[in-house]
Amino acid sequence: MNSAQMVLLVATVLFTLGLVGVLTRKNVIFMLISVEIMLNAAGMAFVAAGSKWQQPDGQVMFLFILAMAAAEVSVGLALVLQIYHQHKTMDVDRLKELRD
């Protein structure tokens, strides 16, 4: 049991928690928050791996994830606003216009 594995364990737990959040919450904002948690967990796993091999690549990957998360959140929140204004709800279960 070493440090890297512990960090990976933490990342796994964070990831699962985020997943649970995405799955259980109906509110779009909460889902987005959970997605952030998952991304963070993924980034943490990258950093752990990078530090294990003592390479900067892991941190580079974290930076990319960071950038992606920022872009995702900005677009996602804009969509949330849009959805709220159009449907007056935040409940994803009621946003079923794509069903056939």
Binding site: A70, A78, Q82
Partner: peptide, 16 residues
Amino acid sequence: LLMAGIVGAAHIGKHK
């Protein structure tokens, strides 16, 4: 990607 994010957000915001 970030540029697309900016443009996308701006567009959606404008639409809204």
